[in-house]
Design a protein around this nucleic acid. Sequence first.
DNA 1: GTCTATATCCAGATAGAC
DNA 2: GTCTATCTGGATATAGAC
Lengths: 198, 198
Amino acid sequence: MSPRTGEQNAQIKDERREQILTAALKVFALRGFAATRVGDVAAEAGLSHGLVYHYFASKEEMFYELVSRAVYYSGQSLVMVDGMPIEPIEKVRQTAKYIMGGIEAGQETSYYFLVVIHAGVMESSPERDKFFQGSTVAVDTMEKILREGQRMGQVREGNPAEMSVMFFSAIMGLAVYNITMPGFRMPDPELLVSMVSK
Amino acid sequence: MSPRTGEQNAQIKDERREQILTAALKVFALRGFAATRVGDVAAEAGLSHGLVYHYFASKEEMFYELVSRAVYYSGQSLVMVDGMPIEPIEKVRQTAKYIMGGIEAGQETSYYFLVVIHAGVMESSPERDKFFQGSTVAVDTMEKILREGQRMGQVREGNPAEMSVMFFSAIMGLAVYNITMPGFRMPDPELLVSMVSK
DNA sequence: GTCTATATCCAGATAGAC
DNA sequence: GTCTATCTGGATATAGAC
C-alpha cells in the first residue's frame, strides 16, 4: 500500500468513528446507557450493527468516550469564559446564558449534559467513578470566579464552592426538565445570576 | 375459608406488596429502570424472583407505581407546607430545608426524586408521558407561594412560574450530584431561598 | 472497510410443585 | 403464598463473506 492510501484510510476511519460517536451521543442522551441497544446507534448512524464493533470494543467503551469528552468540554468552556476580559459576575452571566441556550436548543450541549447525568445516576463502578474524579474543573473554575466576584463586591457572601455546586445543580436539573417535559420553556438565565449576585 | 383467614391473607398480601415496593424503590433509584433486573429487586426484598410476578404484572408496572407515588407525595408535601400558618418566604425556606435534608440523608426522599429523574430521562412513551401530565402540583403550588410572596414584598420580581421551575431544577440536580459524587456535601439551603428572596 | 449471519448469554415472564 | 425450574425473546459480541 502506498502512504497515500494509508492516510486516506486513516481519515475514513476517523470520520466513521466520529460519525458513530455523534449518533451514539444522541441515542445515549435520550435513552441512557442500559436502554440503548448498539443496533440503535448503528441505525442512527446509518451503518450496520456489526461495524460499530469494528470501531469500538464494546458499548461501554463507546459510552465512556462520550462521558470523557463531556467532562473535558465542560471544563474547557469554563476555563475559556474565565479567560475573558470581563468582570466576574459577567462571567457567571455568560456561562448561564451560554449553557441554558444550548440546552434549550436541544443540541450537543444538551446531549452532553444528559450523558453525564446518565453516567452519574448509573450504578457505581470503578469504570464510572474514574470519570467523576477528574470532573471538577468546571465546578472549581466557577468557584474561583465567584471568589473573585466576592472580593470585588459583586457576589453575595457565602461559601463559593457551595454556590458553584448549586449553580451546576440547577443547570443539570434544567437539562432533565427540558427532556422530561415536552414543550418546556427555559427560565430566564438571569435567575441563576441573581442566585449568586449581590 | 373463614372471613378471618381472608382478612389475614389480604393483609399479608398488602405487606408483601409494600415490601417489594420498598426494595424496588431503592434499586430503581440507584440503577434506573433498564439496568434493574427483577431478580435484583427480589434479592433486595429477600424473596424469590418468581414471587414478584405474583404481585406485579411486569417490571414496568412496578416502576410506574413508584413514579406515581413519587409524584403524588411531592405534590402533597408542597400542599401541606402551603397550608402552614407562616409567611410565604418561610414556606420556601421550609421546603428547601426539608427536601435537601431528605436527599442528604439518602433515604426515601432521595430515592423518590431519583426515580422521577430516571423516569424523566427515559425514552418517551405513552406510559411515561401520562405520569408527567399530572405531575405539576408541586411546581404549581410553589408558583402560588412565590406569587403571594411577591405581593407581600418578600420575593423578588420576575416570573414566579420560572422561579418555581428553577427551584425544583436545582433540587433535582442536587439529587443527581448527591448520588454521583461519593462524599458529596449538601450546600446551605439558604442559597436556594436567596435565589427567590428580595 | 462494510455487511450478514450466527453464537452465546442473560433477563423477563410463566408453569407447576409444595 | 412461596419457591424452583423453565421457556423464550432479544441484545452483545463475533465470524466470515464480499
